[in-house]
């Protein structure tokens, strides 16, 4: 029986969908059968980030309304053995699916897959409630900004109330140079404030824009720092101990001098 993990954040635009796509790729690369579920009904996006938008026939709402079987709605990624997508409906709204129906879908999927990753919509309303309904665990995506961390805190409270085990945090779009200059909160600052376990740190990376333009998630190929970070998260999801790369903790005068002379 596979594990169902919801990827959520509260605030929009912090990288939930990019994170879901890349973790799906990275888990499949590890040989794990992975299904990505787009729970953002009405604002379907995971398909374009994955580059699978032209292959959609049926969607999540078709499945719960009984127009097709679950298997018919799944799109298999031809680039990568073991990765599938269950797309959201674009023309319906969030009330077309109930939390019970969502739980039914994830239960059916976990029988087939090692991991089921649910991409949650922004906000704390019906769409969010649907996304967490069948989840065993949650990953919270937050960027080092006041609004994002505040919303993440609210989400952590709601997940606790829903009795989903303690969520783990992915700090996304970190800019190490700004942290060193004291102009961005560090990973430690955020972990300290939210008081949850960290599972990943993804640095800001222009390659994310380029790879998303092409519909080829960064984790598919080598050579992107963000892709590398997502691969590390995937291994931690699987239970491996992977050391965290150092990102921008202030190193004091000595560290700055060393960097100046190119020794760090």
């Amino acid at each position: 029986m596979g594990e169902v993990i919801v990827i959520t954040s509260g605030k929009g635009g912090v990288g939930k969908t990019t994170t879901t796509a890349n973790l799906g790729v990275a888990l499949a690369q590890l040989g794990l059968k992975t299904c990505l579920v787009d729970a953002d009904i009405g604002l379907r996006n995971l398909d374009v980030v994955l580059g699978l938008e032209n292959r959609i026939v049926y969607d999540l709402v078709d499945v719960v309304e009984g127009f097709c079987r679950l298997r018919q709605a799944l799109i298999r990624d031809k680039r990568l053995e073991g990765l599938s997508l269950l797309p959201a409906a674009q023309t319906k709204d969030k009330t077309s699916v109930t939390p019970e129906q969502m739980r039914g879908v994830t239960e059916e999927l976990r029988a087939e897959f090692d991991y089921v990753l649910v991409d949650s919509p922004a906000g704390i309303e019906q769409g969010f409630k649907n996304a967490i309904a069948g989840a065993d665990h949650a990953l919270i995506v937050a960027t080092p900004e006041v609004a994002s961390v505040r919303d993440a805190d609210r989400i952590i409270g709601l997940l606790e109330a829903a009795e989903i085990p303690p969520a783990r945090l992915i700090v996304n779009r970190l800019r190490p140079g700004m942290v060193r200059k004291g102009d961005m909160m560090s990973v430690d600052d955020i972990v300290d404030i939210l008081a949850i376990d960290l599972i990943g740190v993804v640095p800001e990376d222009e390659q994310i824009v380029v790879t998303t333009n092409r519909g080829e998630p960064a984790a598919l190929s080598q050579g992107s720092r963000a892709g590398e970070a997502y691969r590390a998260v995937a291994r931690r999801i699987r239970g491996e101990e992977v050391p965290f790369a150092e990102f921008g903790e202030p190193a004091g005068l000595f560290g700055r001098l060393r960097r100046m002379f190119g020794q760090a």
């Binding site: 006041v146 505040r150 942290v179 200059k181 102009d183 961005m184 909160m185 560090s186 600052d189 404030i193």
Partner: peptide
């Protein structure tokens, strides 16, 4: 530093 200001504001609002 704006990092410290952000941290402090967050603690208060939370």
């Amino acid at each position: 530093q704006s990092r410290d200001v952000a941290k402090n504001r967050l603690r208060n609002v939370l």
